[in-house]
Simulated assay, not measured.
Amino acid sequence: MLEISKNNYLKKTRRALISTAILNAPLFSLYSLTTFILRKDLKASAFHLAIIVMLRPTLSFVSYFWSSYVFNREDKLKINFLWASFLSFFLFFLFPFVNSVWLVILSSAVFMLFYRAKTPAWMEIVKLNIEEKKRDNIFSYTTSIAYFIGPILAFILGPLLEKNTLMYKNLFFIAALFALVNIWIISKLPVNLINKNIQGVKKEKLSILKPIKEGINLLRSRRDFALFQLGYMIAGFGLMLIQPIIAIFAADKL
């Protein structure tokens, strides 16, 4: 009976991973084009583009405070993930009705904030529902689906955006609907809490300094990781500098 239960969790989680890869792909593809849409369709300035590029890494830190809510609380994983998923894209539903550079910037920032925030809960759900031996293969397979769909969508979305400067509004709205359907699918996913002692678990007290202290301790204890982070930071700084320029060049010169 226990084995049947494990297979049930496995099958339903695999379906959820596949649906996530497929239904979230349009929104991710459009999100990657945000700076180009801002420049080409909304005539955003270099300042606007710099703001959105700057917010992306900054909000990764802020997302810690949302994800820390589920620390040692497996019973809160799904509700945490569902709310973060919805909050990540709900502003895109306003696109057909509001024409604003700042709405696009705010929506993109909120999307990245809650995308980062929901990831720990989703990873924990996958770990609880799929045993380790099968987890890596299934996760790799579903991730490959997302990477396969991405280039296909790029060829489809490019001509659509080129023909109509307001097409991005409808595309974001439709992509948000797909993401909403995915939330409904995942809401039906059971989470394997068998033998999990969640009674009497105290919620961890949030601290602004905690992630900073943990990061410093990790860098001190792992010199190889510290060197990797240094190189990653330098490369990331270069990418942040060039991203607004790429959007301006592509929209104005190409």
Score class of each variant (00 low, 15 high):
residue 227 L to N: 07
residue 12 K to A: 03
residue 180 L to C: 13
residue 140 S to P: 04
residue 83 W to R: 10
residue 186 I to W: 00
residue 71 F to T: 15
residue 78 K to W: 00
residue 135 R to A: 07
residue 223 R to H: 15
residue 32 S to E: 10
residue 129 N to C: 02
residue 61 F to K: 12
residue 189 L to N: 08
residue 206 L to H: 11
residue 123 M to F: 04
residue 15 R to Y: 15
residue 220 R to D: 10
residue 171 L to Q: 07
residue 246 I to S: 05
residue 102 W to C: 04
residue 239 L to I: 08
residue 111 F to S: 03
residue 202 K to Q: 15
residue 13 T to K: 03
residue 17 L to N: 11
residue 95 F to C: 08
residue 2 L to Q: 14
residue 211 P to Y: 04
residue 33 L to N: 08
residue 61 F to L: 15
residue 75 D to Q: 12
residue 182 N to I: 09
residue 188 K to Y: 09
residue 172 F to W: 02
residue 208 I to N: 06
residue 76 K to F: 09
residue 69 Y to N: 14
residue 171 L to S: 11
residue 188 K to D: 14
residue 229 Q to D: 03
residue 166 L to K: 04
residue 159 P to E: 09
residue 154 A to T: 14
residue 177 L to F: 14
residue 134 K to V: 03
residue 10 L to W: 09
residue 154 A to K: 09
residue 212 I to R: 05
residue 5 S to K: 15
residue 112 M to F: 10
residue 208 I to Y: 11
residue 193 L to F: 00
residue 79 I to L: 06
residue 70 V to Q: 04
residue 99 N to D: 14
residue 17 L to E: 11
residue 113 L to S: 04
residue 142 T to F: 00
residue 199 Q to N: 15
residue 147 Y to F: 14
residue 201 V to P: 06
residue 173 F to E: 07
residue 53 V to L: 05
residue 246 I to T: 06
residue 74 E to M: 00
residue 87 L to T: 07
residue 128 L to N: 09
residue 127 K to E: 01
residue 163 K to N: 13
residue 245 I to H: 04
residue 88 S to H: 08
residue 75 D to G: 08
residue 144 S to P: 00
residue 230 L to S: 07
residue 137 N to E: 11
residue 216 I to A: 12
residue 203 K to V: 13
residue 42 L to P: 08
residue 191 V to G: 00
residue 131 E to D: 14
residue 103 L to A: 04
residue 250 A to F: 12
residue 242 I to F: 11
residue 26 P to A: 04
residue 150 G to H: 11
residue 41 D to R: 03
residue 151 P to M: 11
residue 193 L to N: 11
residue 191 V to R: 00
residue 2 L to Y: 13
residue 118 K to M: 12
residue 93 F to M: 13
residue 246 I to N: 06
residue 146 A to R: 10
residue 38 L to F: 02
residue 82 L to M: 12
residue 89 F to K: 06
residue 106 L to P: 03
residue 74 E to R: 01
residue 199 Q to D: 13
residue 35 T to R: 10
residue 25 A to W: 00
residue 57 P to H: 11
residue 76 K to G: 08
residue 248 I to H: 02
residue 169 K to F: 00
residue 110 V to Q: 00
residue 242 I to K: 01
residue 160 L to E: 06
